[in-house]
Design a protein around this nucleic acid. Structure first.
Lengths: 193, 193, 193, 193
DNA sequence: TAGTAATCGAGACGGTACGTCTTGTCTTGGA
DNA sequence: TCCAAGACAAGACGTACCGTCTCGATTACTA
């Protein structure tokens, strides 16, 4: 039913192999880092043939995306209290924690970096704006969120992190003020109604 | 006098070789892109021995930094008119143009990406906040610039660019408003005096 | 049955690659000489990956041994007539021709030389006394051959060749006399019975 | 007067440098072996510029020849007692000791090996038949020595050594017999008169 | 229940970049 | 003019990984 190919016979894909690869990537990212990860290393760590890896994923970026970055949704989902300033601050804290301390965040940063000189990776991360979407969920509770508002909220934190500045000194208050002002000024926002 | 090392004998470093390498990196970045650049390729393109490259630079990131990123200063230096809104808008236009169209900008993005999984590159780009410094020069004309203000100004534009969104739809007005509001509210800023 | 290794999986060794390497070494030895032969050159000439060469042979000496020295057996196999003096003379002629004119002889001399400052090559050529064995086959027809007799027969010719003296002036008669005398005096030799 | 060149001025050749190079080669031969010796290593060990080495010697073989092989003469000079069998045996003992235990012997074997695939080295060692000359000095005391007699005497021992056989089992008696017989049969030898 | 077909782990294949090493030459300042 | 130092262009070293290609073995569906 959900099979795109007619499946006319042959051994089915091994779920065991798929999970072993994803776990291997998770482990290797933490233990060795993105740069030291190789397709060869992933296959060996997973106890899987190299062809099996290539059969289902083209690049290590693709595996990493499947293995780690989807998890990002959970880590970036913050509860909404109704207090806008409090909620935006809480989101910024979660965002910075994700980017600087979480393995999934490390994976996201690596992929974001790779995308700058690899169009295939760029296309991959363009399929889903992981950070923007998480921001939108918070903003939606306090006004009509749009891409512009998410950029005001997420952009400074991402930049601060990427250039390696101390997360603790991130100007959260100024960011929250900017977003609040934008939402307030925005025609059609719930607040202004 | 200006010699850091005492020059204790031996053939001096060839300026010709140094320039050939830097030019080769510039050319290769445009022609082949960052990922396809190799130390071997750089040496061959420059007509230089590989050892000579390794003698003066450890990695291709280091060469690229020397070759391209200094040029970034020029490209990001925008004239200041005195009209704050106009100046900030002009800066954002220049910044986005740099990041999306300039070879030096491509180099910067590649290095920023590499820094996410290579601590040596991270240390390299941390030596000089190219984007922040350029922003500070504009902001200084309109208030006491600090890192927070630069983050508000530069962050959204960088994020917008890195995730591959259309530069033309960057919410410049909202960003300028946010920065303006921050500068106005800031105690000790010239404006408020 | 004839498999030494159990063949635990994986693509089997390519016979095509093996032969291409051995042929390349043969050709390069004649065309360029031993000193100019490199592992890189062998691989390229054979149209084979470098790793493939290293996978099956450690050094160029090892390849050369497999490629050429086995052929030496054929070139040093002289027919036995029954006339001892005639046979020993014929053998010496063949031996000198091998050492001075045959590619396999050039290979043998190169390996013998390399063995003087490379213990691995020394171990390699010690596995089979190519010259001694060929001499023994002739001597066996005329008495109980031993290593001493072969040294008397082969040694002077080898020395004469290695120091580059004219092969034509090799004192064959004196050598044959010495070997004949040794065999005659030897207790238990067939001749003396 | 003994200067072949007119010596038109300039700094004279440094005897200090020459000796330092020769000593360095001696040391390196013992410590590292012939194969690990490099022109670079020699120069550094000698505390001498590399150009200085190249100015006076073309190859490491040439330096080695000057450094070590002349010493061979001393080591191969055995006293003559008048007893032919005893003298020839003593010479063979000295010869084998030289080839298997002396640094100068190691150098000689290395050069002899190199000569098999390097015509310049071949020409070098052809300028002086170190082994033959030493043998001739012994043989001259017991008959009219010629190249043939030296080949009978030296050849088996050299061959025995080069292929790595145990020096103790060298058939000295058989060799001595062969040489004695050759000298006795030789027309014009002193013995037969 | 035999045949067919796609999967699996293993590992060799031709390529190619890595960073290091040595080669023989060149270029300094000093003796 | 030589010397020590050391940079230069060139290119081989042995290793690592790339993505592909065989192997024999396994595992489903189909006839």
């Amino acid at each position: 039913m959900d099979e795109t190919q007619p499946r006319r016979g042959g051994r089915p894909r091994s779920e065991r192999a798929r999970e072993a690869v994803l776990n291997a990537v998770d482990d290797l990212l933490v233990e060795e880092g993105y740069a030291a990860m190789t397709m060869k290393g992933i296959a060996e760590r997973a106890g899987v043939g190299r062809q099996t890896v290539y059969r289902w994923w083209s690049t290590k970026a693709e595996i990493l995306w499947e293995a780690s970055v989807i998890d990002a949704r959970d880590e970036l989902a913050v509860p909404v209290s109704g207090d806008q300033v409090k909620d935006l601050n809480a989101y910024l804290v979660a965002l910075v924690a994700f980017l600087t301390r979480s393995p999934a965040g490390a994976a996201y940063r690596a992929l974001l970096g790779e995308a700058q000189h690899d169009t295939e990776v760029a296309a991959l991360i363009a399929t889903q704006d992981v950070l923007g979407d998480s921001a939108r969920r918070v903003l939606d509770a306090h006004g009509r969120a749009d891409a512009k508002a998410t950029a005001l909220l997420v952009g400074p934190a991402v930049y601060w992190t990427l250039i390696g500045k101390d997360p603790k000194s991130l100007p959260r208050a100024a960011i929250v003020d900017a977003v609040t002002a934008y939402l307030a000024a925005k025609p059609g926002s719930r607040r202004t109604q």
